[in-house]
């Protein structure tokens, strides 16, 4: 009886040793348990009347943040993959320098500037934030898709053509699966950058985890800033680890023997 309990306990501790699960628990703890930390923040910042951000729940802010990053990354991903595939086809090869320049330019703009330009055009709220983030996340994805497709060995391409695969078949079954691990690294970079950048989007009225940070900064409430930053940080770490896990699945064939 006690033996099985020990085994169960050991398995529990083993799960905690998995950084992905651990960071997930930390994230969930911060999102759901922030009110419980109110006394801690009160003790840390005794001069503040309201030591806990309570205008909105951290759950709502997190969901809004994740939706914004998810939607903008999905747009970047679709455009980035299409652009990357296009410039590696024979028909699109000439456009490659142009596409690379445009995409690189997109990233040299500071996101705050893109937001500032987008507001007069699109108004306040989630729309300018979505566009700014999508543009900002495009470069790492496009670059990585191109690099991934180019990493497919010449012999593999020639064999695929030589045995009679169609252009579409070669792209879908050979080039993209082999490019996926490299491309995923670009998506990972893009998403992680955007998790941080999305916080800034609260300056134009988008609801994100940046809201407590912005409100805290303008109202000299360091506790708010800290609360927002903690959740953003935990979200970034958890997402990064999740991508790492996904990447290991995509290039399984590099390690497994069966």
């Amino acid at each position: 009886m006690s033996g099985t309990m020990n085994a169960g306990a050991r398995r529990g501790i083993g799960l905690l040793a998995d950084p992905l699960i651990l960071s997930g628990l930390v994230l969930a703890g911060l999102v759901f348990g922030m009110p419980l930390l109110k006394p801690v923040f009160a003790a840390l910042f005794p001069g503040l009347d309201r030591p806990l951000y309570e205008q909105d729940s951290f759950l709502n802010l997190t969901i809004a943040h994740v939706v914004l990053v998810g939607a903008s990354s999905a747009i970047s991903l679709v455009i980035g993959v299409l652009a990357g595939v296009f410039v590696t086809r024979r028909a699109g090869r000439e456009f490659r320098p142009l596409v690379e320049t445009i995409v690189a330019t997109g990233q040299t703009f500071p996101p705050v500037a893109v937001l500032a330009v987008a507001v007069p055009l699109l108004g306040f709220g989630a729309a300018p934030a979505l566009i700014a983030l999508a543009i900002y996340g495009l470069l790492p994805i496009t670059e990585a898709v191109v690099a991934g497709i180019e990493s497919v060995p010449v012999g593999v391409r020639e064999a695929a053509r030589g045995i009679g695969m169609s252009a579409r078949g070669r792209l879908l079954h050979v080039e993209l699966p082999l490019a996926a691990p490299v491309a995923l690294a670009g998506v990972r970079t893009s998403v992680i950058i955007n998790i941080g950048t999305a916080a800034i989007a609260s300056t134009v009225g988008a609801k994100t985890l940046g809201l407590p940070i912005i409100v805290g900064l303008s109202g000299f409430n360091t506790a708010y800033v800290l609360q927002g930053a903690l959740v953003v940080g935990a979200l970034a770490v958890f997402t990064d680890l999740a991508f790492e896990r996904l990447g290991r699945r995509l290039d399984r064939w590099k390690r497994d023997s069966a």
Partner: peptide, 30 residues
């Protein structure tokens, strides 16, 4: 071209096996 190639086997010096496919999947390609 594809139909022609499927009626002709093709083997090259660099071999060009699909690294993400097992031996069975590679042989089964055509």
């Amino acid at each position: 071209p594809e139909a022609l190639r499927r009626r002709m086997g093709y083997a090259i010096q660099s071999i060009g096996l699909f690294p993400h496919w097992t031996v069975e999947e590679n042989i089964a390609a055509v």
